[in-house]
Simulated scan of single mutants.
Amino acid sequence: MMIDPQISHTDRKVTRVSFAELKEATGNFNTHNSIGLGKIGIMYKAVLPNGSPLAVKRLYESQSFEKQFKSELSALARLRHNNIISLLGYCRERKEMLLVYQYISNSNLYGWLHAGKDKNKILDWPLRIKIAVGIARGLACLHHNCHFSVVHLSLSSKAILLDQNFEAKISNFGEAIILKPGGLMFVNSSDNDMSNRVFDGSGARELDFYKKDVYDFGILLLELITGKAPIQINSYSNRLDGSYVDWITCLLTCPSLMCNFIDKSLIGLGFDNEIFQLLKIAGACIKPLSCQRPTTLELYHVISILGENYGLINDDPEILRQSEIATASTSNEIVEAESI
């Protein structure tokens, strides 16, 4: 199998792999090698003859998953970034559809935030900031690439993988759409469903899609702060008969109430001011109107300021270049966070 798990970030080639090779590498898709069960397939750990690990997603045998297979292949084949999962290979034989990725050892963020009583799975605040910075950096790369942009559309803590150093990797691109300058998507001409989603170039629909990712990122930040799953966070806001924004506003104006919702492992450790700032950023992300939400580039820069407290430096050359040409349209909430 000619796949290099240490593939260069400048090498964008995705290798076509035979089903027989993947079958052998996963031990005939042995259930003991299953490391994840998703809506469209099962993820397996595979081992190359030289001992290097890989992750293989085997999609269920259904024609309805053809779109997700093409979307993920189209998006990830064009991307190489430290905060985006690397697609190394694929297989399309008869009814079989498989995608081969770099193996990420620490599973997903959801498992770490909602591990129950497992004391070996506790994320301290500096690690949560590192993860937030990494996700924001990855999203900024997806949205602000000068040649094309990718809108994820299904961002969640289950789609964030963590490597051995807790560097966040955005994954699960099955619902992603790809746009080039001018608003048109990269589409497969044989995929009528995707072709119907080509934009008109006005920018209105594109903005809604980009800001959907921003909204989902805001929910992710709330998960990092509260340690609660989205369904639990939603129940909190419903108790106030209001929106997420109303709930966050209430928390920000009542510190004693905020302590009831922050992850208990974070309380009393001197991080209150940073938690307060990240909560304000989350509030900006989930504003009802998409035009009111910041861009992912703005978000990355603001969260990076918090990251500097832990030695996390903005050294991404592509994002630095985009920053030089970006216009200043940051919301008041974001500006306030920057001034701290």
Score class of each variant (00 low, 15 high):
4 D>N: 11
7 I>R: 07
8 S>F: 00
10 T>D: 12
16 R>P: 00
18 S>K: 06
25 A>Y: 03
25 A>V: 06
28 N>Y: 04
29 F>S: 10
35 I>N: 12
51 G>N: 15
57 K>Q: 04
60 Y>V: 08
62 S>C: 00
65 F>G: 04
67 K>E: 11
80 R>L: 01
84 I>Q: 00
84 I>K: 01
84 I>P: 00
85 I>Q: 02
86 S>G: 01
98 L>A: 06
99 L>P: 06
99 L>R: 06
104 I>H: 02
109 L>D: 03
110 Y>A: 10
110 Y>G: 10
111 G>K: 12
115 A>G: 06
120 N>Y: 09
125 W>N: 08
126 P>S: 01
130 K>S: 03
130 K>T: 01
132 A>W: 06
146 C>E: 14
147 H>D: 09
154 S>G: 14
155 L>D: 05
156 S>N: 13
160 I>V: 13
161 L>Q: 05
168 A>C: 08
168 A>T: 07
172 N>C: 07
173 F>G: 02
174 G>Y: 00
174 G>L: 10
179 L>M: 10
181 P>H: 14
183 G>S: 12
186 F>Y: 15
187 V>E: 13
204 A>Q: 13
219 I>H: 00
223 E>F: 02
226 T>F: 05
233 I>P: 04
241 D>F: 12
245 V>D: 10
252 L>G: 08
253 T>Q: 13
257 L>V: 13
260 N>I: 06
260 N>G: 12
263 D>Q: 11
266 L>F: 09
271 F>Q: 09
279 L>V: 10
284 A>V: 10
284 A>F: 00
287 K>Y: 06
291 C>I: 15
297 L>Q: 03
297 L>A: 09
298 E>S: 11
311 G>A: 05
319 I>F: 03
320 L>V: 13
332 N>H: 15
333 E>Q: 13
